[in-house]
């Protein structure tokens, strides 16, 4: 597989680090070049990192329930930076409590995310989705 850059990070004031580390590990093993920004990552940091690394996809995590506010406007910033083509994925515990996931998915897709993943998603599902979307099959 030719080198594919990915950017990874937990958005906003969120400090949940464990899932992020597991994703980094799994995606690296799957052959991607992962640029992990860690926790507490701002929207601007995602945009800048994607630009420098020529990322093909950006995987945003949000665990602490404030995903909706933190992610709003991210896609617009990517468009401003000329990064319209970069895939945007989001996952984790995106909203507070147990809301209906189809509704959550609709909301985040309307915000410009290409894929939205429910709580407890295994890394393999993310890898599978990336391979499909990036034509790496």
């Amino acid at each position: 597989m030719k080198e594919v850059n990915l950017v990874l990070g937990v958005i906003g004031a969120d400090v949940h680090a464990i899932g992020n580390k597991i994703l980094e590990y799994a995606l690296t093993n799957a052959g991607f070049k992962v640029h992990n920004l860690g926790v507490m990552v701002s929207q601007e940091e995602f945009v800048k990192a994607a630009l420098e690394t020529d990322a093909k996809a950006v995987l945003v995590s949000s665990l602490y329930g404030h995903g909706e506010i933190d992610c709003r406007g991210l896609k617009e910033k990517f468009i401003e930076a000329g990064l319209d083509d970069v895939l945007l994925y989001v996952g984790g515990n995106l909203v507070v409590g147990k809301q209906d996931f189809t509704e959550v998915e609709r909301k985040f897709k309307a915000m410009g995310f290409d894929r939205v993943f429910p709580p407890g998603t295994m890394p393999e599902e993310a890898i599978q989705a990336l391979k499909e979307d990036l034509g790496l099959m």
Binding site: E3, N5, H35, L51, E52, D54, A55
Partner: peptide, 9 residues
């Protein structure tokens, strides 16, 4: 400068 290795060209 510009771009990480394998990144933006």
């Amino acid at each position: 400068a510009g771009g990480t290795d394998g990144g933006n060209k």
